[in-house]
Computed example of a mutant assay.
Amino acid sequence: MTVALITGANKGIGFETARQLVAAGHVVYVGARDAARGEAAAAVLGARTVQLDVTDDASVTSALAAIDAAEGRLDVLVHSAGVLETGLDGPAASRSFETNAVGIVRVTQAALPLLRRSQNANVVTISSSAGSFWAVTNPERPEFDLSLALYSASKAAATMLTVQYAKAEPGIRFNAVEPGTTATDMTAAFGIGRPAAESARVVVRLATLGPDGPTGTLSDEDGLLPW
Results as ranks from 00 to 15, higher is better:
residue 3 V to T: 15
residue 3 V to A: 08
residue 7 T to V: 04
residue 8 G to Y: 04
residue 10 N to M: 11
residue 15 F to Q: 03
residue 21 L to P: 07
residue 22 V to F: 13
residue 22 V to G: 11
residue 23 A to W: 10
residue 23 A to E: 14
residue 29 Y to H: 10
residue 30 V to S: 09
residue 32 A to H: 06
residue 33 R to I: 05
residue 34 D to H: 14
residue 35 A to T: 10
residue 37 R to E: 12
residue 37 R to L: 12
residue 42 A to C: 11
residue 42 A to P: 05
residue 50 V to E: 08
residue 51 Q to T: 14
residue 52 L to I: 07
residue 52 L to E: 06
residue 54 V to M: 05
residue 59 S to G: 07
residue 59 S to L: 02
residue 61 T to Q: 13
residue 65 A to H: 12
residue 65 A to N: 13
residue 69 A to M: 05
residue 73 R to F: 09
residue 77 L to W: 06
residue 82 G to Q: 03
residue 86 T to K: 12
residue 89 D to R: 10
residue 90 G to K: 05
residue 91 P to S: 02
residue 95 R to C: 00
residue 95 R to L: 02
residue 96 S to G: 00
residue 98 E to S: 11
residue 102 V to R: 07
residue 107 V to M: 03
residue 107 V to K: 01
residue 107 V to F: 00
residue 107 V to E: 05
residue 109 Q to V: 00
residue 111 A to E: 01
residue 113 P to K: 09
residue 113 P to S: 08
residue 114 L to G: 13
residue 114 L to C: 06
residue 117 R to C: 06
residue 121 A to E: 08
residue 124 V to I: 04
residue 129 S to G: 15
residue 132 S to C: 13
residue 132 S to R: 05
residue 132 S to M: 06
residue 141 R to F: 09
residue 141 R to D: 15
residue 143 E to K: 06
residue 148 L to K: 03
residue 149 A to W: 00
residue 150 L to H: 02
residue 152 S to D: 01
residue 153 A to N: 03
residue 154 S to I: 06
residue 160 M to N: 12
residue 163 V to C: 02
residue 165 Y to S: 01
residue 166 A to C: 02
residue 170 P to C: 12
residue 172 I to K: 10
residue 172 I to L: 12
residue 174 F to I: 03
residue 174 F to Y: 13
residue 177 V to T: 11
residue 177 V to D: 01
residue 181 T to I: 15
residue 184 T to F: 08
residue 186 M to Q: 15
residue 188 A to V: 14
residue 190 F to V: 09
residue 190 F to T: 10
residue 196 A to Q: 04
residue 196 A to Y: 01
residue 196 A to M: 03
residue 200 A to P: 11
residue 203 V to F: 12
residue 212 D to I: 03
residue 212 D to S: 14
residue 216 G to K: 04
residue 219 S to Q: 15
residue 221 E to G: 04
residue 227 W to P: 06
